[in-house]
């Protein structure tokens, strides 16, 4: 697959957006997000985030609604997701975080249905896939962002 976007250096002043799926576990008095929202599976390259240089929370949510659910031809709903922001400079200071790197996703032009391109896509990389220190500190640093649904709907 041709890569049309160069990988760029993410500055420490950049903001990263993390999208967290709502579940039935988010019941009353539960802490949102939880550290489990920053876990990755074994073998994955890193924790997916979007870089603010190429997106806004509303744009990213709109892209989520153009994306198929994993293994299905059913679109996700942006209303199923919370948005959190992280400062890349802080993230880089967490021990055991190897890198915060730009990792743009280009699936084609025109982009295939259900698999949109994402120039903002970036990865927070850490060596041990379930490192509790990394996840605990990311969780405590993350700030919730409220997005006006009408802004997202206009983009769909």
């Amino acid at each position: 697959m041709q890569e049309v976007w160069e990988k760029e250096k993410i500055s420490d002043k950049s903001i990263l957006y993390r999208f967290v799926h709502k579940t039935r576990m988010d019941r009353k008095n539960r802490r949102i997000p939880s550290e489990s929202n920053f876990s990755i599976k074994k073998g994955e390259d890193g924790l997916s985030v979007d870089w603010d240089k190429y997106t806004t929370p509303a744009k990213s949510l709109a892209r989520i609604s153009r994306t198929y659910k994993y293994g299905k031809e059913v679109f996700k709903s942006y209303t199923d997701f919370y948005v959190f922001s992280l400062k890349s400079g802080f993230v880089r200071m967490i021990p055991d975080i190897r890198d915060v790197s730009h990792d743009p996703i280009f699936n084609g032009d025109p982009e295939p249905i259900g698999n949109p391109n994402n120039r903002a896509h970036s990865l927070i990389k850490f060596d041990y896939h379930n490192d509790p220190e990394v996840r605990l500190k990311l969780r405590d640093h993350a700030e919730r962002i409220t997005v006006n649904e009408s802004q997202v709907d206009k983009l769909l």
């Binding site: 802490r31 489990s36 379930n130």
Partner: peptide, 12 residues
């Protein structure tokens, strides 16, 4: 007590 995406369990 929370589930993680890799099937493990967190005690937070």
């Amino acid at each position: 007590i929370n589930p993680c995406i890799d099937g493990s369990i967190d005690l937070s």
